[in-house]
Nucleic acid binder design. Sequence first.
DNA 1: ATGACGGATCTAATCCGA
Length: 267
Amino acid sequence: MPLKIATWNINSVRLRIKTVERLIAEHDPDVLCLQEIKCTNDQFPAKAFAKYGYEHQAVHGQKAYHGVATVSKRPIRDIYRHDYCQMGDSRHVSVGLDVGGMAITVHNFYVPSGGDEPDPATNPKFDHKLKFVKEMRALRANSGDDDAVLVGDLNIAPHENDVWSHKQLLKIVSHTPVETEGLTRVFDEGGWVDLVRRHIPVDQKVYSWWSYRARDWSASDRGRRLDHVWSSPRVADQLASVTVLREARGWDKPSDHVPVIATLDLD
DNA sequence: ATGACGGATCTAATCCGA
């Protein structure tokens, strides 16, 4: 049995529950990690997910903004929430799963967007983003015998071909050198493998987000790869396939992000 | 100008996204 893990910034889970049901019907992930659920824990559509077999749920929401949730068909051993930057907002939840003889922690992140101006001295949102990413350096892909998977909307497009124009985005928040270097430190120091880039070579353009503001998102195709799936090397060795579901950006009432799905041959 | 839309909220105009 493979393990299929999907990450998706859903931009309001209540507004888009039908859209989530379409993903489930067509792709049937075992573990679904959502960001920007934009609701409190009480408002989360727990019964709708349970109906489709996601009986195991780790919801960390807040009113109106942010919020993450991981729902799973497999039992969740334990749940942790880390309050990055001690801001009291809901941007991380992790779950422990036991799959194919491996103990796997799945981290689900919603990294701050960072506002408009890429200057931490004048823009507190950008300062928050840099501090958040710095704090993520403590994460490890492996600790003892345990492995980890890290997914989410990291709000940073690290490589040149993760954006439509490397040159034109170097001063745009999400692709500035201070951000991409910061995320690269998290990646290198944690011992992670980028599953999407293991599957799709770095010389190929790949995006997971397209602005709502474009007249025709597909024709202009000015996207960015903000949503990521990383894992420990041992988990990465079992990677069977990766899907960046571009077509979901064209569904009715879409999120501005699309699902990123990794399938692992773990047992 | 890359491009002005889309979500939530004390339903109107404002904050936020990136």
